[in-house]
Design a protein around this nucleic acid. Structure first.
Lengths: 337, 337
DNA sequence: TACTCGTGAACAATCGTTTGATCATGCTAG
DNA sequence: CTAGCATGATCAAACGATTGTTCACGAGTA
């Protein structure tokens, strides 16, 4: 690990000269000859600036934290891919902090943030992460971008067109001729969950369809909770002929539970899900989904955080490009008659 | 962000006193009174040691890099979960570096490693990452643990019982009565790929079954390549009645291609796959798999790296606990007769 | 009284970079 | 001939923590 002073010695100049030349700031007065010698020496020694020293001096770590509920999740993976890629273009690194299975009293988030490890944080709140945790984060004074939740405190946010997406999904079922439509939503405290429900209700209202309370569930976004939702609906005297599932992971649970209960999809029941990950295609039947730009959401989140870090501006952005798109596969069909 | 000297001022002592008290090294001589004042001051100011300063002084960043081929991958996710969790117990953070879609000439890996950002690196080589890249990594002088590949240079490794796993998968098909069994493997340059193929061949040899060369393919571990493999086998005058797929992701591709070609699974063809991720259950039919301890592999990798960082010892470990296990679902059945 | 020794705490150097201030040199202009 | 100035480079002070060394003080001993 060659240091600046190693290079300086080899080139026969001072460390400051080396630093200035190598950092290529405009307006430094160094002769062509020494410039050359410095570059040569640096190359010969394979010099790389020490990140910790740089970070200490400049109080910039060129790293951001990404706080997510869990990593074994295709939705998260897409998001993360976007974050990663955008970070690369900005010359940033990404530190993952999963809140999955956090022992109580766990300190990893405050530690991540309080010790100057990162220049900012991207937070995607899952069901089990509350506003309190968010406060811990925002109170740290670090730039924070929250993903899919409008940040109540300061700090910006990025989110998707959840409402429009759900409307699209619901309209698809309505167009197919369904009138008794169920809704399997996320936990009611989640903000994006509320937006999705709103989208569903809007579409139903626009079609003058009634929404019976027992057809609206809010167990959560995971496969097991999707299964729970289906159980609840299947128990009804007249189950719905179609279900809008607010999350594709939950939809996978709905699908397996349907199989277990002998409900044929889409013959007995149509399923349409929010988010289009690669798992939609391997499911049986392949899931009809509404594709929201998760990858772009990740990129936008990182880009916003970068802006926030560098200029302090914090906005709430809605990622609407590409627009929500219905991907029709084989889990939806007209209702049996 | 309170610093040591802020605390020192408030407690009316020197920074060194504060440092010694707060770091709780045994054998420091500080009176109970000042000790108390220091602790109080630290608490009041919510002092947290600055990570960059600490790292610079101690040349320990308490962070490791995790280099993986891609993040949108259930196998990787399991692995990463293990790494994460073990890292947490060791008070380490994980920096993800995905080699997916790396622009050519991309420098992110050498940068990650060369700049003193991390204390060590975990590398999982995908198909498109060669020994050359590995050399870049090992040459940096940093502790490296390679995952699922025995490191040709120095540095330790952790891997799974690929051979035993494939034997288990193959024996399952043999026991069901299959004799004409195909093999859809990974790219031949991959070391774990070679071990898996060996396991398959061993099991076949032990059952005195012949392995026709055209039934052994090596397109790769991704869904599309699984589909390719099936295409190649379906074209044969007498296709196999069962296929061992060396990777579950490829198996998903096999399944959809089978559907496209009108091959019923398991009636016309049985499929057994390596690795058991949550996607196995959402597939149709649910995939019979061999479960290898991916999560434990991740934990072991991180633990090994930690050992390597702290004591310089580098071993090649095989993670054999829990042992490979066959999970029978619905993609395998006796051959039609 | 003078000396040693233990105790509790401060001093100061260091890690590798960055950057404002300073300095030596040679040249031009008055 | 010298003040003034642009040029090219060095000096030195940070950033925040760690740690070997030194120092002041009082108690114990000869």
């Amino acid at each position: 690990m060659a240091t600046l002073s190693d290079v300086a010695t080899r080139a026969g100049v001072s460390v400051s000269a080396v630093s200035r030349v190598l950092s290529e700031k405009p307006g430094v007065r160094v002769s062509v000859a020494t410039r050359q010698r410095i570059h040569d020496a640096a190359k010969e020694l394979n010099y790389r600036p020490n990140f910790t020293a740089r970070a200490l001096k400049s109080s910039r770590t060129h790293a951001v934290g990404l706080v997510v509920p869990g990593v074994t999740n295709a939705i998260f993976a897409e998001l993360m891919r976007g974050v990663e890629e955008e970070a690369r273009t900005k010359d940033y690194m990404v530190l993952i902090a999963s809140t999955e299975r956090l022992p109580e009293g766990e300190e990893s988030i405050p530690r991540l943030m309080g010790e100057g490890r990162v220049d900012g944080v991207l937070v995607q709140f899952g069901d089990h992460l509350s506003g309190d945790d968010l406060r811990t984060v925002t109170d740290s004074g670090l730039p924070v971008i929250s993903i899919n939740t409008i940040n109540p405190g300061s700090g910006g946010s990025v989110r998707l067109e959840d409402e429009a997406g759900m409307r699209l999904a619901t309209e698809h079922l309505i167009e197919l001729g369904h009138t008794r439509i169920g809704y399997a939503g996320g936990v009611p405290t989640s903000e994006s969950g509320q937006r999705r429900l709103a989208g569903f209700l809007e579409a139903m209202a626009a079609a003058k369809l009634t929404v019976e309370p027992e057809l609206v569930t809010d167990f959560g976004y995971y496969p097991k909770q999707g299964a729970q939702a289906l159980d609840a609906m299947a128990e009804l005297s007249t189950p719905p002929t179609a279900v809008v599932v607010a999350n594709i992971n939950a939809a996978h649970g709905v699908l397996s539970e349907a199989r277990r209960l002998g409900i044929r999809v889409p013959e007995d029941m149509s399923i349409v899900a929010m988010h289009d990950t690669w798992t939609a295609e391997i499911a049986w039947p392949p899931l009809t989904c509404v594709r929201l730009p998760l990858y772009e959401l990740g990129r936008a989140a990182m880009a916003s955080l970068w802006d926030n870090i560098n200029s302090g501006i914090a906005e709430d952005r809605v990622i609407a490009d590409p627009a929500p798109e219905l991907i029709v596969r084989e889990s939806t069909a007209p209702p049996a008659r």
